[in-house]
C-alpha cells in the first residue's frame, strides 16, 4: 500500500489552514469598499451585504435542518418491514 498522507493529523496544520481561512475572510471584508458595485437592489449595494447574508443564510439553513430533523428522523429500517 502507498504511503498515507497525514497532513491534517497534525493539529498545527489544521491551525494553519484555519488561520489562512480567517485571513481570507479579512481580505474579503477589506476588499468590499474598493469594488465598483452596480447593484439591482438597494440592499445588495450595502457594505459587506454578501458576507452577512452568507453567514446568516448558512446558520438559518442548519437551524431549520435541525428543526426538520426533529420531525422527520426515523430509524434506518423504518420502511423495511
Amino acid at each position: 500500500m502507498k504511503k498515507e498522507i497525514k497532513i491534517f493529523d497534525n493539529p498545527k496544520n489544521v491551525k494553519r489552514l484555519l488561520r489562512g481561512f480567517y485571513l481570507s475572510l479579512a481580505v474579503l471584508l477589506a476588499a468590499d469598499p474598493f469594488v465598483h458595485k452596480h447593484a439591482e437592489f438597494p440592499w445588495a449595494g450595502k457594505h459587506q451585504f454578501f458576507a452577512a447574508y452568507g453567514f446568516v443564510s448558512c446558520v438559518l439553513v442548519i437551524t431549520i435542518a435541525k428543526i426538520l430533523r426533529f420531525f422527520v428522523k426515523r430509524r434506518e429500517d423504518y420502511y423495511d418491514d
Partner: peptide, 28 residues
C-alpha cells in the same frame, strides 16, 4: 463573501457542536 462567510458559519457550527451530528437514520 457569500461562500466564505457561509463556510465560516459552517466551521463555527461544527466546532461548537451545533451542527446536527451524523446519525444512522433516514428522513421522511
Amino acid at each position: 463573501q457569500l461562500l466564505m462567510f457561509g463556510m465560516f458559519a459552517f466551521a463555527l457550527m461544527i466546532r461548537s457542536g451545533y451542527y446536527p451530528p451524523e446519525v444512522r437514520a433516514i428522513n421522511l
